[in-house]
């Protein structure tokens, strides 16, 4: 009995070890960066590599933020990559349908803006469906999102008939891969904006507080007079919106949309979120931790790319091992704190 009691997660302990884990993560980012720079200074420390990194990580970083919301709520969201692909496909379709060669810049921007809003709404609706399945029908989050992942990519499959959509207007691609003020890549700007919004939601808003309370204990949240259904739906809607941003970035980078793109992102985003110190049982997690974990992963994978002899599949081996090791390490550090 005593042993069992010790293993029980206590909110205070998670918060305490989180402060440590942020320090640990920051150290890891710096060390990884330094090691890669020393090992391959001619490849890693170049502006083109740093640029490439800044274009890559916002895609799965946004999805990881979405998974964070779901996981803090006590569930998980595996369907976000499906939402991202679906929005990318719909955006491509809409853009091809509505833009003409002879349109002026202002008109183009207006159409982009409308499409952007529509896609955000699609993401939100998809997320809402997830939330309703989970809170309304009481399907376990894992299965509901597993099913909706099939559903969303199935809809994408039907729209594209299994092929990739190409021929996105060049103006969109230029905008999505361009740089703000000449030095800030647009995906990075979107990512940073999303991070600030999430940070504000998690630490300053009532919704963030409610989310954490619900993740810690559904029953306690219910007795506190919260509407748990609403909180769950909102959390998944936030995830859906973040995923739709990710889809828009992917569309600009790939210049095409496919229903089965980025299937490795699901695993990667769960890895990031757990690495970022979010409690897989729900109730605790910080935006800071998730952002740092995203940076760690990007440094690691960019660094591995510098060694052409290492097979890209070994990365998957590394992800799986890291996920297990980090979870076991967190387990022991929590146990130590409890004693």
């Amino acid at each position: 009995m005593i042993k069992q009691f010790k293993q029980m997660p206590v909110a205070g302990n998670w918060a305490c070890s989180a402060r440590d884990s942020v320090k640990r993560q920051l150290l890891l980012v710096v060390v990884l960066f330094a090691v890669m720079s020393i090992l391959k200074p001619s490849l890693f420390l170049t502006s083109s590599n740093l640029n490439a990194m800044a274009y890559q990580f916002p895609e799965y970083g946004l999805i990881a933020l979405g998974v964070m919301f779901a996981m803090i709520a006590g569930g998980i969201d595996l369907s976000l990559i499906g939402i991202a692909n679906l929005t990318a496909i719909l955006m491509a379709k809409l853009l091809i349908l509505w833009t003409r060669e002879e349109m002026s810049g202002i008109q183009n921007i207006g159409i982009f803006f409308i499409c952007f809003l529509l896609c955000m709404m699609i993401g939100a609706v998809c997320g809402m469906l997830n939330g309703c399945l989970i809170s309304g029908l009481k399907i376990p989050a894992m299965l509901a999102t597993l099913g909706s992942l099939q559903l969303f990519s199935g809809i994408g499959m039907i729209i594209t008939k299994g092929k990739a959509i190409t021929g996105v207007p060049e103006a969109y691609v230029r905008m999505g891969t361009g740089k703000l003020f000449g030095f800030l890549p647009v995906p990075l700007v979107i990512y940073m904006a999303a991070v600030f919004a999430c940070y504000y939601i998690m630490s300053r808003s009532t919704f963030g507080m409610r989310l954490k309370l619900m993740g810690t204990s559904q029953k306690a949240a219910l007795f506190a007079g919260q509407n748990n259904k609403r909180t769950t739906v909102k959390a998944h809607m936030a995830g859906g919106i973040l995923a739709s941003f990710s889809g828009l970035i992917m569309l600009a980078r790939m210049n095409s949309a496919r229903p089965d793109f980025g299937s490795s992102y699901t695993m990667q985003s769960i890895l990031i979120v757990v690495l970022g110190g979010v409690d897989p049982a729900g109730g605790f997690g910080t935006v800071r931790g998730v952002v740092l974990a995203t940076l760690i992963l990007q440094c690691f994978s960019s660094g591995l790319n510098m060694f052409p002899t290492i097979s890209p599949y070994l990365k998957q081996l590394a992800w799986g091992l890291t996920l297990l090791v980090v979870m076991i390490m967190n387990f022991y550090s929590r146990q130590r704190k409890a004693e």
Binding site: I76, M142, M267, L317, G320, L324
Partner: peptide, 29 residues
């Protein structure tokens, strides 16, 4: 792993799935 740490089964098996995939394609080619 599941017995000792009682982690969520889905996350553990996702990790082992990834590891198996890595061994299969990365090491065994």
């Amino acid at each position: 792993i599941i017995m000792r740490y009682r982690f969520p089964v889905l996350i553990v098996t996702l990790a082992t799935c990834s590891i198996c995939q890595g061994i299969l394609f990365g090491i065994l080619n």
